[in-house]
Nucleic acid binder design. Sequence first.
RNA 1: GCCGGUGUAGCUCAGCUGGUUAGAGCAGGGGAAUCAUAAUCCCAAGGUCGUUGGUUCAAGUCCGACCGCCGGCACCA
Length: 677
Amino acid sequence: MKDRFYVTTPIYYVNDVPHLGTAYTTVAADAFARQRALRGMATRFLTGTDEHGLKIDRSAKERGQSPQAFVDEISGAFRSAWPKLRCQPSDFIRTTEPRHKKFVQELWSKCAANGDIYQGEHEGWYCVSCEQFYPEKDLAEGKTCPTHKKPVEWMKETGYFFRLSKYQDRLLALYEQRPEFVQPEGRRNEVVTFVKEGLKDLSISRTTFQWGVPVPGDDKHVMYVWFDALTNYLSAVKDSEHAAFWPPNLQLVGKDIVRFHAIYWPAFLMSAGYGDDLLPRTVFAHGFLTINGQKMGKSLRNTVEPVRLAEYFGADELRYFLLREIALGQDGDFSHKKLISRIRSDLAATLGNLLNRTLPFVVKHFDTTVPSPDASFDGEREAHLRKRFAELVDEAKTAWDHFEPHRALECAIALAIEGNGYFDARAPWVLAKSPERKAELGAVIYNVLEVLRACTVLLWPALPDKCDALRAQLGLAALLPIAGVDKWPSEWGGMAPGAKLNPGGPLFRNITKDDEAKILADFGVTDGETKVTDATTAKAAEKPNAHANPAATPAAAAAPAPVSADGVAIIGIDDFTKVELKLGEVKSAERVPKSDKLLKLQIDIGEAAGPRQILAGIGLAYKPEDLVGKKLVIIANLAPRKMMGHESQGMVLACGPSESLSIVTIEKDIPVGTRVK
RNA sequence: GCCGGUGUAGCUCAGCUGGUUAGAGCAGGGGAAUCAUAAUCCCAAGGUCGUUGGUUCAAGUCCGACCGCCGGCACCA
């Protein structure tokens, strides 16, 4: 197992084209695959597309296409995008492929055979037009569908449920025994907390649409997205000649979908009979990207369309930036300025220049061949260089092992900086003036070439083409990982004296200040800020991973247990009179800190004890100062309740969507404290 | 409100199990060099290590409280 490495990205939901967020995940996965391959591991890198669900079905219809034609097109856009970023997945799986569907059904049957799938009733608010259930909080004004504005109905539907609750203890044991299972640590803690709070069974089928994998033996139902989608990691290898790659060593996911990968996914596998040693090794959650400091809304995404960036700046340059600038697992910011700065200082000035200043000596004094090393010229400088070489090569390796590409790449550039320092200290241009010192010159140049050689390996996971181009100039073959052969530089002295070099042009474009201004203008960036006309709409958090089906947000996917909820029951007058509604007047109002909606109101309802403190979630529609003096209707006999640390002694009546709701008031002047009935 | 994280030079961040003058990169300042895409190298400067108590011979590093920011959960009756 140690010699194999299987890395996955989420499969991307085809309701959107590839953007920088998906590119980030894919590039990172590709870099890990390349790095492990260089170390001699047999590697497998899987990505693909998630193609089922109501939303796809509907999008296809809107475009007058069959769902299959629609997903073929978008999936193709993903498949063709990755090579443009020099990503080389070893497989690309689509959930609409027979190999996948067959496998999901098998997995389902195994879970069912183990008694973990049962039929139950799923009920909730249902929009006939959408053919979809909505959680209560997503409903628009007056219990209507958020898209159609038509009244929703309380519906019951028979569906299948997965006995997630059964796996709570086993999951907790897994997190306990294998702390590396969810990373970074912060995410792990969140997962553990979530599971400890109790797991509800999961609704895993739908009859409201057909575009999905049919439930075995009951094809009125299709599987709900997460059961279908998560299984891709398994179906891509299990029944193939690559079965030995199971389980995945690294599953890269965005932080928004950790829960599905760290809780539901292992539970499905456990249910299907997979032992702990056959569960994924590590689910690693990376952070989100902002664009020039702003959340990645759709309009912002367009300005950083990854293929365009790659074509403009170079795929390798973009990859390097994403991996070097941002700590995997932390949120990061993409900005054109920072990208340019990285290219300029790390790549062109440090690495490119080291090559560029070395080659003329090789050409002029050594007939464009590698000069001979000569230990007799070794001094303090050389000792230092060797020491740093060994340290940095080792640190870089460790960093990759710890899922820290940014540190690994920092080490690689640090080695190039050491090379430049050594170059200056030994001043080959001075040595070159004395013909009798030619052997010493050769020894110095050899050492520099050796540093460059090591750099091409250390940087290859991020910069495959550039490193191969650099190697070509050094007269070295392009790197070709071979299983069982560790090519990570461990030994000093890989350059062969006498070998021919092939000096070429500069590897990296030098971006001057003038160029920079022009580039920023091309991309519509001013003062480091992308122009956004609709910055407020961009506020809606966009997720870098398209995997999360909007219809499968945590609230929806963690469906209510199949027990009855409150429907719209008929009540008698006596039930109504239990509710004491009173007219009140707002005496003062203030926002509750850290809450968007909650206002703390002091409301006079004619009680001798003075005004009541009541909290109301109306802060989006009303400013506190506008409420003072207003009369409104409250429920006076509601049990007091604490919200966000403040006690509420009643409830304010209001209706409408939260941004524009209206409080319930009266139209004649009636004294406060009067009962409303 | 509960839980977790975090707050270190202008910016982005390192600082492991507490121990000499708190580090790096970038930006800015000075200098050297001139092999190289005006790229490189060196030097100096720059920090009350969020605030405040405490433990200790010794704390950025441990403990308490508070403040700020971020995240998860809950809540929005």
